[in-house]
Simulated assay, not measured.
Amino acid sequence: MKFTTLACIAVVVIVVMSSLDPTKAVVARRSEEEEKVACNARELKPCVPAAEAGTKPSTECCGKLKEQESCLCGYIKNPSISQYFQSEGAHKVLVACGVHYPTC
């Protein structure tokens, strides 16, 4: 039963994330230059297993989270995916990756 529930959640996450259109966010770089980052929640797919199972996130997951840190408020405000970013599992992944949960 537990596996079926996790499989259903994973399918829902993949379907929702695949329906999102990429947006742009501006990120300040250390050299004070600005770079456009594509806000695409699908890029965070490597983080799903860690968020669901409570395991340590992969290096790829943490890298993607750091790349898209400026996009998190947009994801949190998006009603179709906000529940995934506000979950306890998502908070644990952010902490493990050293990414601060944004105050939007």
Rank of each mutant, 00 (worst) to 15 (best):
F3H: 12
T4L: 13
L6W: 04
L6A: 14
C8L: 13
I9C: 04
V12G: 06
V13T: 09
I14S: 10
V15Q: 15
M17W: 00
S18N: 15
S19N: 10
L20S: 04
D21M: 06
D21E: 15
T23Q: 13
T23F: 07
A25Q: 12
V26W: 11
V27K: 15
A28N: 10
A28H: 11
R29V: 08
R30P: 04
S31Y: 12
E32R: 12
E34Y: 09
A38F: 15
R42N: 12
R42H: 10
L44D: 07
K45H: 05
V48A: 01
A50E: 11
E52A: 14
E52P: 00
K56W: 11
T59M: 09
E60I: 02
C61R: 00
C61W: 03
K64T: 04
Q68R: 13
Q68L: 14
Q68S: 08
Q68M: 11
E69I: 12
S70I: 10
C71D: 09
L72C: 03
I76N: 02
N78V: 02
P79A: 07
P79K: 02
P79V: 04
I81V: 13
F85H: 07
A90S: 12
H91C: 09
K92D: 14
L94H: 08
V95F: 06
A96Y: 02
H100L: 08
H100C: 09
P102N: 05
T103F: 03
T103D: 15
C104D: 03
